[in-house]
Nucleic acid binder design. Structure first.
Lengths: 150, 150
DNA sequence: GGTGTTCTGTTATAATATAACTCATCCAGG
DNA sequence: CCTGGATGAGTTATATTATAACAGAACACC
């Protein structure tokens, strides 16, 4: 069990200083999208996020959410989970990591573990003369809690 | 440059013997979907495949393609490329591999390299008590040919 | 010759994502 | 000031990807 409140505060304060440093704006919509993802601590679909924003009177249409997510992803504050077509707040913002995701198919919680570069993907690419730009490493299965519950 | 015809023939004959062994049917639609993917040697979207089928008078609606793809994926003859929401014929059918994909963002060719199990994903999962069921390892970038061309 | 199973056909719709254009805001340079 | 560029948000419409649900054909087995 981790201290969720302080983890959210830390992530938000990292986001703020990151944006200040880069000279980009953490606008209300962008900030709120990040907060929603941090509060949930799991992967949310774009339209789930949109529903929340609507409830709060912020941005009522899909492009608003997708733009905010684009921004947050470019800033390294949010990751896209390809397996789920969903999005999760980065759990290791600013640590310069290669993200590896363990996705529970039951509770949809996403465990992000920072990994060193130089895994199979990099070795495979080197052998093929392939220039990697982005990588995706995701596993789907059952998390420890859901295994215990079962 | 590889011998594409013989590679297609080999893959089809593997598919046939696999289906015979498992007692499942490689029906015309399923076979044709596999052939289309083998001929292209790159990732195709479900609707691109559907268009081809339609041209040939086979299965005119999305579920037909998605069902064929489900079958082929379950049989290990086709892989889903999550990054692209697309599908590619397996280049190493029957070799019992953990697929790793290098996806060229320019020509959309997919290089599939067979990797041993036991990479970062497995190590991360072990540490977290997470039971892996499926894994995704994909890299996007530029292939050797497109790099040379640029 | 029915009966169960497997596969296909079809209609409809859900879920995810983006194009294209408008308007508001802000702020730097004149 | 005020103006012109840049940035971000609002909005409409639509593209793309995927599935639910049910009807019918084919075949295999008893």
């Amino acid at each position: 069990m981790h201290d969720h409140d302080s983890c959210i505060r830390a992530a938000l304060s990292h986001a703020e200083s990151h944006c200040a440093r880069e000279g980009v704006q953490l606008t209300p919509v962008r900030r709120r999208v990040l907060e929603i993802l941090l509060e949930e601590h799991r992967a949310l679909g774009a339209y789930e996020i949109l529903d929340r924003l609507r409830d709060e009177g912020l941005g009522g249409q899909p492009p608003v959410v997708y733009r905010a997510l684009d921004f947050l992803i470019r800033a390294g504050l949010v990751h896209r989970i390809e397996t789920l077509n969903a999005f999760a707040a980065c759990a290791h913002a600013g640590e310069g990591h290669v993200p590896v995701f363990l996705i529970c198919r039951q509770c949809r919680h996403v465990i992000e573990t920072p990994a060193p570069a130089g895994g199979q993907l990099e070795r495979a690419a080197e052998g093929a003369g392939f220039a990697i730009e982005t990588t995706v490493r995701e596993a789907e299965g059952l998390c420890a809690d859901c295994r215990t519950a079962a």
